[in-house]
Design a protein around this nucleic acid. Structure first.
Lengths: 340, 340
DNA sequence: TACCGGTGTGAAATCCTTTTCACCGGCAGG
DNA sequence: CCTGCCGGTGAAAAGGATTTCACACCGGTA
C-alpha cells in the first residue's frame, strides 16, 4: 500500500548506481550487463514505474497520440478508430479518443489539450472545414493527419475516400436498376464530403442524359449527417407532387432516418430504391436488402496512423493525400423498382 | 510561425512581474487588478498557453480523466461515453477514451498510462472481473469509479443497472406473452453482468412453476457478448430436438446475431420470441417489432462521472454502489407466439 | 613507457510550472 | 509614535526524468 512515488533516484540508490544509469537501462543506453541486471532487479523490487509526465516534460513530447472524431456514436468513426488503434498497437504509443460532437468549440478545446499535453501526434476528422484550426499544432511541429474530412487550408497529410467516384457509381447503379427519378440527400453545405458525393451523383445523372437529369435540384436535399436529418429530408421528398422513385443518401446514419421515413409512408426499399454511402451498421443483418457504397473505414484509420507514424519518424517528404477506393456492395433485392 | 515555447517567464518579463505572479493570475491567486491586466495583455500578445505537462508534474495530477471501455463498437458504451463527457463538460476536465477491446492486456496498458500520466481520475468498465487490477490506482489515491461491470474485489465506487431484476422482468414478459420454452443466451461465465441477468431469468422461470422451468439448463448458453457469439448460440438452440420458442438474450450485440440466425432458419421474431437486454441500435427503426430491456446507458455514464467528480472534490464518504433501474420497452408485435 | 581512442559512468543542467517562505509596505489600534 | 498584522510580491525550491559533458579507465599502439 505505498502511496509515495518511487523515483528513478530510489532505484539508483538501491542498485548502487546513478540515476542516469537507471534511465539508460530503461531507454536502451549502453550499460554493462551486470549493472543493467541489478538495476532491473531493484526496479522490480521497488515496483518502479517511470513517471510519464516528467519524461514528457523533459523530452518535450509524450507518447500518446490523439484521435479526434466528430461523432463517437457513428459506427463509421468507431471502426476508423479501431484501425488507428491497431496500427498504433505495434508501437509503444497509446491512442486516446476525443469526441468533438461536431462542435467546433469542443474540438478546439481538445486540440488545445493535445498541444498542451505535448502529444506525439494528432489524427483529426475535422468538425468543420473552415473553423478547424490546425495552425497551433503544425507551428509547433506536432505531426497531424486529417482523415475523412480535410480542413480547407491546412498543410497536413490527409486520407480520404473517393467521394466523387463513389457517388457517381452509386447513382449509376440506381439508374441501371431501372429507377428514373433519383433524389440525393447529402450532408451539410460546405463539407467536402457532402459536396463531393453530390457532385458524383450529378455526374452520373448528366451522363445518363435520357431525361433523367431533368428534375435535378428539386430532388437534392442538404441535411446534417444524422438520423433525424435523413428522416426529415426523406419526408420532404415523399411529399413532393412527383416523389422520387429512388434516393442516394450520403451517409449511413441519414440512411437509417430515410428507411424510417419510408416505413412511416408504408414503402419498403426495393419499391423505392435506397442507396447508402457507407454501410448501415447491422442493418445488413436485420434487413439485408440494402445496397451501399462500402467505405473502408478501418483502413482509413490504419492508413492515417501509418502516415502519422512516418511523420513522427521524421519523414520530410512533401505533404501527401491518400485516397482510398470505395466499393459498391450490391445486394440482390435492390435489383429494381417493384412496378417495373 | 513560432516554434519556440512561450513560457511563463517570457510573459513575466514582458509584463514586468515575476513568474510567480503570472502563475497566480492564471490560477486565481491574489493579484492587484492592474498587474493582472498587464499580465493578461502580455500573455495574449505572446500567445502564451500554459504547459499542461509541467503543471501536471508540479501538481502531481493532470486535468484529464480517462474512460476505459471494453468495446468501442458497441453503442451501449458509446452512449455511456456521451454521458461521461457531458458531465465532465461542466468542469474544466477533459475526457479521453480508451478502448480495451475486452483484452485485459490492453486494459492493463491503459491503466498504466492513466497512472503514469497522473490522470485526475479513471472510470472503467472492466474487461474482466478478476484480472482487472485497480490496485495501483487506488494505492496512489487516484479516484476510480467502476461502471456497468464491477471488478471483484476492488474498493471503488460503482454504478450498475439492476441486472437481476431486469432479467427477471424480461423472462416474465415472455412467459406472459404465451411462450413456454424460453432459452437464455447470456455472456461469458464469471462476468457479473452475465451471471446476474441469467439469475434473473431463472428466478422468473422458477416463479412460473407450471412446467416451464423443466428444461432449464439445456436452454442456457454462455457466449461472448458479441454478434458472432449470439449467432452461434442461437444456431445451437435451433438445432435442438425441441428448440425453444423464445429466447432472452443478455446483450444488444448478441441479439443481432440471434436475429441473423433466425433469419437463416426462416423464422422471424413474433414467431420465435426475442427479448434483448439492452436496446438493439437502430433496429428499432428498421425492425420495430423487438421488445427490449432498456438500459440507461447515458445516465450510467453521467452518474459515474458525477461520482468521480465528488471523489475528486475530496469526498471521503464510504465506497458506494449506485444501481440504476432498467425499463421494459414493450413493442406491440412481440405480443405472442404466432401459432398460439 | 607514454599516448590515444573508445566505452561506460556520474554530476549537473534542463524541461516549465506551482508553491512555500520571507519580506516589504501600509494601515489600524494601542 | 510605535507595534502588529496583513495582503501582495518575488526568489527559490520542488517535482522526476533525460541528456550533455567531462572524466576515469580500459586495451592497444608508437
Amino acid at each position: 500500500m505505498r502511496t509515495q512515488l518511487v523515483t528513478i533516484h530510489d532505484v539508483a540508490r538501491a542498485a548502487g548506481v546513478s540515476p542516469a544509469t537507471v534511465s539508460r537501462v530503461f531507454n536502451g543506453g549502453k550499460v554493462t550487463p551486470a549493472r543493467a541486471l541489478s538495476v532491473q532487479e531493484a526496479a522490480a523490487a521497488l515496483g518502479f514505474a517511470p513517471n510519464r509526465v516528467a519524461r514528457s516534460l523533459r523530452k518535450q513530447r509524450s507518447s500518446v497520440i490523439a484521435l479526434i472524431i466528430p461523432d463517437i456514436e457513428n459506427p463509421f468513426f468507431t471502426s476508423l478508430a479501431r484501425g488507428v488503434e491497431d496500427a498504433a498497437q505495434r508501437t509503444s504509443l497509446s491512442v486516446v479518443l476525443c469526441n468533438s460532437d461536431e462542435d467546433t468549440d469542443k474540438e478546439r478545446r481538445y486540440l488545445e489539450v493535445a498541444l498542451g499535453e505535448q502529444m506525439a501526434g494528432v489524427i483529426v476528422a475535422a468538425a468543420s472545414q473552415d473553423e478547424t484550426d490546425l495552425g497551433p499544432l503544425t507551428d509547433r511541429r506536432v505531426p497531424v493527419v486529417a482523415v475523412d474530412r480535410r480542413p480547407r487550408d491546412a498543410e497536413v497529410d490527409a486520407v480520404q475516400v473517393d467521394n466523387h467516384h463513389g457517388g457517381e457509381v452509386a447513382t449509376r447503379h440506381l439508374l441501371q436498376a431501372g429507377y428514373h427519378r433519383i433524389a440525393c440527400i447529402t450532408g451539410p453545405e460546405g463539407a467536402s464530403t457532402s459536396e463531393e458525393r453530390l457532385a458524383g451523383h450529378r455526374t452520373a445523372l448528366r451522363a445518363a442524359q435520357g431525361g433523367a437529369a431533368a428534375a435535378d435540384d428539386a430532388y437534392v436535399r442538404h441535411a446534417d449527417f444524422r438520423v433525424d436529418g435523413g428522416r426529415a429530408a426523406m419526408r420532404e421528398l415523399l411529399a413532393l407532387p412527383e416523389p422520387p422513385d429512388a434516393v442516394f443518401v450520403a451517409n449511413n446514419l441519414m440512411t437509417i432516418g430515410v428507411l424510417d421515413a419510408l416505413r412511416e409512408a408504408g414503402r419498403t426499399p426495393p419499391d423505392v430504391g435506397v442507396l447508402s454511402f457507407g454501410d448501415v451498421p447491422w442493418a445488413s443483418l436485420v434487413r439485408p436488402s440494402l445496397t451501399a457504397v462500402e467505405l473502408p473505414s478501418y483502413e482509413l484509420g490504419r492508413t492515417a496512423a501509418d502516415l502519422l507514424l512516418q511523420r513522427m519518424d521524421g519523414s520530410v517528404s512533401p505533404v501527401q493525400t491518400v485516397v482510398l477506393r470505395t466499393k459498391l456492395q450490391v445486394r440482390k433485392s435492390t435489383a429494381g423498382p417493384a412496378r417495373r
